[in-house]
Write a protein that binds this DNA or RNA. Structure first.
Lengths: 248, 248
DNA sequence: TTTTAATGTGCGTGTTTTTGCGTGTTATTG
DNA sequence: CAATAACACGCAAAAACACGCACATTAAAA
């Protein structure tokens, strides 16, 4: 492999992930650490990236760091960190859309090898940054509001999938009413997602606890994991602990 | 073997693989290293390729699919402006992926009422910003390189669609060889897209003109419109005008 | 046909680039 | 503060390179 190609590869990784580890590059490119270090130094000289102990960072990363337009981003990252513990190598995972799922995906470990089905284009794009993850985007009508695909075709395709784990954002959850939603189409969609996964994890920031909306998706017992940003011992979770439900 | 023949051979290799190694050429052409080096230097002088230690790279080779800095963005906007003239109210349009298409979508008139099928999640998200456009995302395996869905499922779904117009980005176009591509899957995909649309418009920045890659998608006659950023009278387009092809 | 000039090609020589390794130093972590 | 990992520096071998020169081939001029 030519040096220029290596540089291109590194810059590609940087643009994709905003960071690279020296050790990863050594493995991926099959050259010595010194070579990688020299490459990184040369790219620094060209003002293309920012070198740190252990690897390098994207130059634009720091300047555009504050994409804090995401509401309650800190909470969602906390939820994401908990949720990734459920994902193991070799798993087939089904995900919905929403900013919480998106934050989770950004936190996945680089080496993870798994298959992801998703109804969210944005999640698909983010997942595609991981070399060892196979991404299948479930197609259909595209919802302008929730930025996911929906409709009959999606549900048909979901019925053909067998997933180990389903990761689902939530509109509302209530200890007695279970999972609920406002829109018929989204409701149908979530039912279909639940049906095709062995276990389902609901990702839910605390302010959506104890709310019931118009349409019932499923009772609380159909859910395997409830993941919030709260400490496990937090009082808001008492009512949920009484059910057969793992709280993370 | 004549020098010109060697040069043609080298350029062919470059267009095919985006790179050549000096050592490979020495073997393939059975001449001395010096001759190859001189050849490469001459091709550099003609501005046809990019020389590096160990070989040479294609000039139009840009590996990074970097969304922050779209390559040749001005040209792509110019192409987009021309292409939207083809889109009328009520149409069913099929689009591929790529930055050119993405720029086009951003230029669509707000009031446009149409149905768009697309294999690109990013295009879908962008299209969703228009109230009167119905967006159907065609799902399937998601390609990390080209950021579109592909594979058997996509092709099956495409076969069920009847579109008025297909908007397609391009890897390479050549007056004799037609539309060509490097990857089998993308090649199959483009064939399927062509098959389901009444007319096809190829969006192509000028530096991708007159290049032939490994796999043939279709002859030039199968295309209805060729859209570049160049003026209609530009000499680069002469060879294309001879064919039955509308140049915009 | 012969001469002359121009161009193309290969080889020898010396230079530069690239790369991996050994050594010792600096950061990071528990 | 000690163990580990990451780092910087210099060195040496190998590869790639540039340059000049000689020889071959070709083509036009004499």
């Amino acid at each position: 492999m030519l040096k220029k190609e290596r540089h291109d590869f590194i810059m590609r990784q940087i643009n994709l992930h905003n960071r690279v580890l020296t050790s990863d590059l050594v493995q991926l490119l099959n050259v010595s650490e010194d070579t990688i270090r020299r490459d990184l130094q040369e790219l620094v000289d060209e003002n293309l990236l920012y070198k740190v102990h252990g690897g390098a960072l994207s130059k634009s990363y720091h300047s555009s760091f504050d994409d804090s337009t995401v509401y309650a981003r800190e909470s969602k990252i906390a939820i994401g960190k908990k949720a990734i513990q459920l994902i193991k190598d070799g798993m087939v995972v089904l995900t919905g859309g929403g900013t919480t799922i998106l934050e989770l995906v950004k936190l996945l470990p680089q080496g993870l090898s798994a298959t992801f089905f998703t109804i969210s284009p944005l999640v698909a794009v983010e997942l595609a940054k991981y070399n060892n993850i196979e991404v299948i985007l479930i197609g259909g009508l595209f919802s302008k509001n929730s930025q996911v695909t929906y409709g009959g075709q999606v549900i048909t395709q979901l019925s053909e999938i067998k997933a180990d784990l389903c990761l689902m954002g939530t509109s509302a959850i209530h200890p007695d009413e279970g999972l609920t939603d406002t829109y018929w189409e989204i409701n149908q969609l979530k039912k279909a997602m639940l049906a095709c996964a062995k276990r389902t994890a609901v990702l839910c920031i605390s302010e959506k606890l104890d709310i019931a909306l118009r349409l019932r998706v499923c009772p609380i017992e159909s859910i395997s994991y409830l993941i919030t940003e709260l400490d496990n011992a937090h009082e808001s979770l008492f009512r949920y602990k009484e059910k057969e439900l793992n709280i993370l």
